[in-house]
Write a protein that binds this DNA or RNA. Sequence first.
DNA 1: TTTACTGAGCTACACATC
DNA 2: GATGTGTAGCTCAGTAAA
Lengths: 167, 1122
Amino acid sequence: PRRIPNERDLVMAMTDADAEGGALDYFDQNFLKNWAGPEHWKLRKVIRRPEADTNAATKATKTRGKKEGFKIDFLSPPDPEKDLKEIAKELFAPVTKGAGINLPGTGATAKKSKKKTKEKKDEHLLPDDMHFSSRQLVTLFLKPKFFLKMRGRKARLDENGDDVDEN
Amino acid sequence: MPGRVSQAADSPLTLLRAAIPKIFDQAQVSANNHQKNFVALYKLHIEGSKHTELVRNGQGVRLVGEKTFEEVLNRLLLLVLPLKKGTSQADRILKFVGGYTKFVNEKAAEEKSAQEGDDEDEDTTASRFTAHLLKFLLKGFESKDKIVRYRVLQTVAEMVSHLGEIDEDIYTSLRAALMDRVSDKEASVRVQAVIGLSKLCGSEDPAEVEEGETVLDVLLDTLAHDTAPDVRRAILMNLTPNATTLPHILARTRDTDPTIRKVVYGTVLKDNLMQGEEEKTMGPTHPRALTILQREQIIRNGLGDREPSVRAAASALLGLWADIVAMKSEEDQDQEDVSVERGVLNLLELLDVGVSTVAADALLSIFTSRVDIFENIEFGDRFWTSLTPETAFLARVFVGHCKAINDDVRLESTLPVVTALAFRIQESYNDLLDDIRDHDDQILLGGLTEDERNQKEDELLDREFVLAEILRLAVNLDYADEIGRRKMFQLVRDMLSKGELSEKLIPCCLDVLRKLSSNERDLIRVVVEIVHDLRDPDEEDEEDPIDDAETSYSATPATVKPQRMGLFTKPPAERTPEEAARAKTIDLKCLTLCIGMLERVNSTFEENSTLDGVLQDLVIPAVQSKDLDMRSKGFVCLGLCCLIARRLAIGSVGLFMSQIKSSPDELKLELIKTVFDTLMVHEQAFTKQGIDLGPVTESLVNLIGTEADEKVQALLCMGVSKLVFNGMITDNRALKNLIMAYLSPNTVSNQELRQCLTYFLPAFSYSASSHQKKMCEIFLSTFSQISDVRRKLEDDQEMVSGLQVGMMFVDWTDPLKLSKAADAQGHISDSNGVNDFIQLEMATNIMMALLKPENKDEDDMKILVQLLSKLYIPDKVDDDSIRTLKLLLHNYSMRRPLSDATSNRAFTKFDTAISERFAKQLEDFSEEEYKQLVELKDIAEFLDDLIPLDDSEIIDIEPKKKGRKRYVASDSIISTTTEGDCSDSPPSSKQGKKPKSKKRRLSTSDDEDPEEDDTQKGSPAPPKRTLPKRAAVINKKPPQVIVISSDDDDDDEENTPGPRQKRLALSPRYQTNVKKEEKPDQEINDMLDDDSSELSEPPHDSIMDPDSDEEQDEVNDLLTED
DNA sequence: TTTACTGAGCTACACATC
DNA sequence: GATGTGTAGCTCAGTAAA
């Protein structure tokens, strides 16, 4: 599966998966993030039920009132005490101690380390998306045109989940 | 100096000091007034510049006015620089300064050209201003304040494009300074630096760069490697697309950040389609300017994106592509035929409709996002008579889309009638056949040059493709008309009967045939007949083109033809090489035909007696063939038969299994697929008949760890996942092995495997409370095993961190996730089936693991403690559970073997949190009392077994093989060993609901939990549990691709060479299979004996017994047709 | 208009370094 | 062990989407 299911596939799924496959749609919808394998895995917590949400609505309009009242004060006369150069010196003062302003691993020794780290640098690319979905869990390898109806799974949420449908 | 100016000069300078701030004050409010204020400021600038002083006795001129102007401006700028990011006022001011730089330099350029002839290098007010401002800002590049750096760089970035002409040395230092800031610690600073550089790099000539990287090199490197998406995006948006940069830009269609991907489609690719003043010339990202690979990359990645917004952007882009390619090319823009079809067809020509699904996806996307295009597509009269690959493709996809959206009206108005189309197909098929024969003759005669030959072959391929497309389209035709229906049926049937039919057309033909057959039986019968015809062609006159005489398809003889002496009745040994080759070709085609047919049917084998002949004559000989291709197809065919023939399946699973190990990967894949599918379909029936599938599934599970080929690994994981997911494998080891494979460093590059499991593991966990329970059960042992793997990691291998692994388990066992999924699936009634206390159990398990002295890996313990706080403990828990936990916590705080402060803190936090939350229930907590409680007896004993803290350290040092030293602590009872590391299950009963006092074992090993390592169990078998033995077992482990548990559970069975036999002994039914597996060759021969004398009575003729209705129903029910 | 998601800023803590 | 830096978790505000 290297391709996003197109409409034909989806229609096929809809016409027939209604019985049981529909239940798995939830996973297809909700696993859209976190598809790319363990290294890209991220914990996504469910938001606890917001019990009181009725009074929160009115607050939005209130905050709208105060909008950008701020203005930079260009008009006041400059502080005669402070010379332009002094201010500049102050603002532009470079770091004296501690961590520099550059990323660790760069700077003076960069030339050596660059070649070493270059291979390991993350390219920030996603892996090939195999578009794995519930479909693959309920179809056969040899007969992809058919869906398995997992009748046994209707009791899925029972306490003894390993039961098998017995009719 | 200001003090020294004369009275007369004072007033203009004072004016400057007063007026500039006013302009800035306005400029900060809105960008609308900027243009006006440029003029105003410029006026002040020029006026001021007229004020000069003579110095050094008139030998030099001091530009007092300009200097003042610059100083005032700098001072104002200094007010802005410390303002944090996001202050729009500051942004506007800096924009204003940048804009003014542009303004002033343009004015200077105008003036210069007005008074042309003067020498070039003359300083102007503008150039002096620019240089001064730049020098001023350059001083701020290394400020310690990140905000100042950000603002300084922002100002510079605004200015860079409009610097006019500047001194070489200023340029050099600016360039160096910007390059330096690309590695700034702050992403926001880097963003501004790369924006500046990207404006600089256009003017840079690589030839002039003596050493080091060019600006472009740095930008392209940063585009790919910078950790901050913002930085990458900034480069992307400011880089000019061209032949050099485009590949790098397109690579970003798979950037990890969705907004970047969106920018590629919605900004970069879209805005550079056209260029020139009126956007009339082809731009760098015009589809015609791209290579076909690039176009396909763009479409595939865009439409295949997980993010809907990216897909939408890609879709919109494709719509634009269709618009702009509608015009043929540069010259004839005002050409007649600018219909929507033209655009779409031109676009299709730019793609390759023949290979891959990109073109179809693109087309469908355009149909959906650009309804205007879809609705205006019409197929004129001439359309159907002059089909090209593109038009046929368009028609097919169009019809498919109409069908998909149930647009019957449009469908009817566009589609030709069946009969007409049938004749069309027939005609082109006959023509094609003739031409193919002509062409073959030509080749024989040698009258063609290489070019002519290739050209002709391309043309024939095209026509074949057209035919395939029309056949696909034909599936969606309306067959209410009986005449057309018959015509089409006969046509397709005849086509399939021709030996020349390309294999590519077989699936299309079968789809049509299936649609036209009244039921599956008919379809099967017809295909079987065709197979007979193909293998026994004498009766047919195969030279005849398909006859369009009306033949009733229902009149086709249903009986199997009598055997005659033909190619296939001749014993293979007597065939000439030519005959053998021809026979093979035909057999392969027949197998393809059968596979295609079997894929499309689901009625049982027993209902279709005609299949038996095919099985005997074709499939079984193929399986026995030495030819790999043949064998592979034979096995697929046999596997497909098994899916609809239970008895055949029962006999064949062993065969498939036995063949797996010795087969080449290609065949192995098919065999494994077959086994999994068979299990999926027949598992219930097998179980009902008392067949123990354990050994089969077990060896499949074990194969995950031993197979080297990625595809095979992935397939195994997928198959096992399916079986576990659907409850056909309940053994926890399967689940555990899947997780090991998931996280193993050896599968990092196996995306198929990893993505499968990324889906499966949570889906499994969130689909049943019992599944979460399993996850809970295997957590600790899996966790420690993964840690083992991590410790042995090679330098170049990578693996997710232990905390990450732990977090995954916490996530998988989160009851909130389960109930959410259950609710969404409409299982609301079942949501009380969600076990809210599952992570309380996890906590108890973790605590017990922490208490065990032999768990001493600092890192692991630390992670476990950290995980405690992530667990969900519901507000209401029963007394026993919480008291058990508290007892463990209490003991741990007494004995705490933790050394590092972090863990201590985390533990204390959790302990107090629990104590406070459940204060009421724990009110009268006292250790001694609780130990007496029956409910907690197991725990109490567990704790008593623990060696007191003081001594445990001795134990750690002492090797285990010497036997456990026992220490009598004041309040502990001497007991048997408490060996083992992380054991999975708590000895406690579930929430104390079923108070039962178990035998004293560290861990329960009930049926659900075969997890326990033998060495971990408290079972009294000391000799087995010595360290050397364990080490030996580890060493014995065969070289594995994925390190799967070696000290795994149920050692006695698992690591012995023949676990299968041992297990099978329990199941008499299975023993036969064992024998088969032991002697695969013998078994094949037994089962697949194709001695023709036995044909009428095959060894397994029993499968021909009509099955009970019940069984048929079962198979039918199980599979649902698309 | 409401809602959800993202991004910035803050705080606290962990980790490394001396 | 004191120090400073880096990072994770949290909250809030702003924006985009419904």
